[in-house]
Design a protein around this nucleic acid. Structure first.
Length: 192
DNA sequence: CGAATGATATACT
DNA sequence: GTATATCATTCGA
């Protein structure tokens, strides 16, 4: 079933990141549906997190979607090439978000291969936030769209993720964030 | 290991 | 309004 607004509007972004593991990210772009199991997430704790765009209450046109009510998408173009997909959580004026870093193909593999210009499915298809977004057809045009009735949504397929099935660790690529870079805000689903 | 790549933020004129 | 520094990364040597 599709996750409702109650899931996203909770205040604990770290808890939501952990619970998103094993959930299914779906997109419907130009009438083409793709699905992928989420295997890696990172929490961005809004204004108290140096790694977040909204650190210290920074509020600009770009970060505006993060300040909205939880349950929408925040897509950002990074390094001029890569689209990064985030899920906005919590309430208005609390810019918490969860970055989806990696997944496992579930449906629409052909389309993902085509978008990534690859011939065969391998571990690199959905490895890394930029590749994942590209394979799912997510672009910055989709920032601010609803996860309830938009072209992107997340489903709960009843997968239970136990404590011993995932690991935590420091986030990737955020060295500039000082002490906050060491926080264990990264969640990795480890198959067992 | 290092270059590519462009929107955005911030600091200027 | 215009300029330049920066970046939640990836891919190819």
């Amino acid at each position: 079933m599709k996750l409702g607004s109650a899931f996203y509007r909770r205040d604990d972004v770290v808890l939501i990141s952990r619970e998103l593991l094993g959930k299914v990210l779906c997109t419907d772009i130009d009438g083409v549906v793709t699905r992928a199991v989420i295997t890696e997430t990172e929490a961005y704790a809004g204004h108290i997190d140096r790694a977040s765009h909204a650190y210290g209450g920074r509020r600009t046109k770009r970060t505006e979607p993060m300040y909205a009510e939880g349950g929408i998408a925040y897509v950002y173009l990074c390094y001029g090439i890569h689209h990064l997909f985030n899920v906005v959580t919590s309430c208005s004026d609390t810019p918490h978000a969860v970055l989806i870093r990696a997944g496992q193909p579930l449906a629409g593999e052909e389309i993902m291969l085509q978008r990534r210009k690859k011939k065969a499915i391998d571990k690199t298809l959905l490895a890394g936030p930029g590749s994942l977004a590209q394979a799912m057809g997510i672009t910055t045009a989709l920032t601010g769209t609803s996860l309830q009735d938009g072209p992107i949504w997340i489903e709960d397929h009843g997968t239970r993720v136990h404590d011993e099935e995932f690991s935590t660790g420091p986030r990737v690529g955020v060295d500039y964030a000082g002490e906050d870079a060491a926080l264990p805000y990264r969640f990795i689903l480890a198959p067992r």
